[in-house]
Design a protein around this nucleic acid. Sequence first.
DNA 1: GCCGTTTTCGGCCCGACTGTTTTCAGTCG
Length: 590
Amino acid sequence: MHVPRPTASPRAAGATRAPRTGVHNADIARCFEDIADLLEIGDENPFRIRAYRNAARIIGELQLDLAGQIQGGRDLPKIAGIGEDLTGKIAEIATTGHCALLERLRKTVPSAVAELLKIPGLGPRRVRTLYRELDVKSMEQLLAAAREGRIRAIPGFGEKTEANIQQAVEARLLKPRRYTLHVAAQYAEPFVRYLRDTPGVIRVVIGGSLRRMRESIGDIDIIATARSSTRLMDRFVSYPEVKEVLSHGPTRSSVLLQSGMQVDLRVVPDESYGAALHYFTGSKGHNIAMRRLAQQRGLKLNEYGLFRGRTRVAGASEESVFGALSLPFIPPELRENSGEIEAAGGGRLPVLVELRDLRGDLHSHTRWTDGQNTVKEMAEAAKARGLTYLAITDHSRRLAAAHGLDPRRLLDQIDEIAAIKVRGFTLLRGIEVDILEDGTLDLPDSVLARLDIVIAAVHSRFNLSRERQTARILKALGHPLVTMLAHPLGRLIGVREPYEVDMLKIVRQAAHRGRFLELNAHPERLDLHDVHCRMAKEEGALVAVNSDAHSVQQLDNLKYGIGQARRGWLEKTDVANTRTLPELRRLLRK
DNA sequence: GCCGTTTTCGGCCCGACTGTTTTCAGTCG
């Protein structure tokens, strides 16, 4: 099945407990975040706190494995934002699994207190006050204090704040949610259409992480220009699906929909449209870096424009903002402050792959297994979307729940595919064959040899050790008949963590053997991850952006795959299925 | 804690909204 049953998977433990061999960048980043939280509650120098947060963000996005680097006896490269002191702490965490500073801070403030920062409306100062005045050390104690009316008695707090805190804690116990891209889009698009229907409105567009095509979306950001902002704002907060109005001002408002999704609207004058769109698209890190760049040139960047003194020098369009800072337009998918500003400044921005560059799709399913449509219907739907070829790649026998194909049925399917003719369109014969636990394939070579495309996929034993899982996949990629590795991390966004594998080894094996790495475009997968797209590009492995469609409608998921590929800096030449069929066949023969 | 053709010291992104105050702190994005 393309979406296997969720399985429990332990989250990475904190980096500062027992020493262990596998310290990941995420662990180091988490440690720095925890330090920043505790320093903040301790009312430390805000710029010192910012340095830790900044470092955490940089490390979290870094491709280089820091602990591996140190354990291999190599020096860390110079990383902007990480100086002498933090380099030392990285080395400390990588070698000992502990950070002495964090341990020390935890003795002054219990780390459960830092959890309270996650409550919307509670920042460091209020958390500190609640801890000192009421000895509140946990969510439970905070909720009790609110219910008993003890919070309103503290100076600076009032009844309203107390009620808000109580509500926020209760809501948090219901679990905060993030949404996959396609779910967020389902909420966003009708809302945008509704807003466009307002008299006097000029423009309404989606920004934020949805525009950046991030794999999961926390809230929806909408930017608008209008002749009357108050009229638009009034209509915004009266949208029928609104459950609660979180804030309501003339230029900025936030609402909660019945689904729990938060939506923010920012309204600016039309001449500020580009600056506001840029600001509300983010990411936060990108915005900070851009404002700093402006500042270095004696300018000021905010959501109203780019200013020299009081004079606006740009802001009507995003292009004008970038241009006034001597930069080309940076596509939204790249705006993560992960080198895009430097690349833009140096004329090294990639020309990103686009949906219309795709010539075919190399992974799809039919009624032969767990798909909903026939081979012919899939072919016609793919052709209608402008593609010129489609590989039919149903499951192999091991996946019994999906009615996986045994050799006999696969041979029958090959015959059916050969008999189907769609003008100007080519069907490729394929299989998504299970990689068994020992790295061998679920079907004999004699059958696989009759196919154009052999996709190898892990659908079982997700919990093998990193070493065994990696060896299993490397062995499959070494099989002479394998074309490609399906969904390399096996994750389901928000449901199942990726399995433990050494992606660098896998990417290098793929590059060495000429195998493709799939970027599975299903919005719950988006697997390859964007950082591994960049890794694949650097190591010279080709990526195939595939729909893994189980129905004709799911062919439309390709747009999400392209979004992820763009986030991974991929260009047309980095993606295998941008090739024409003759070019693809030449690649496959190699 | 980081960083530097304005600086090795003195800066560090910017503005809106809420609630509790009577001019602003705290929080958020």
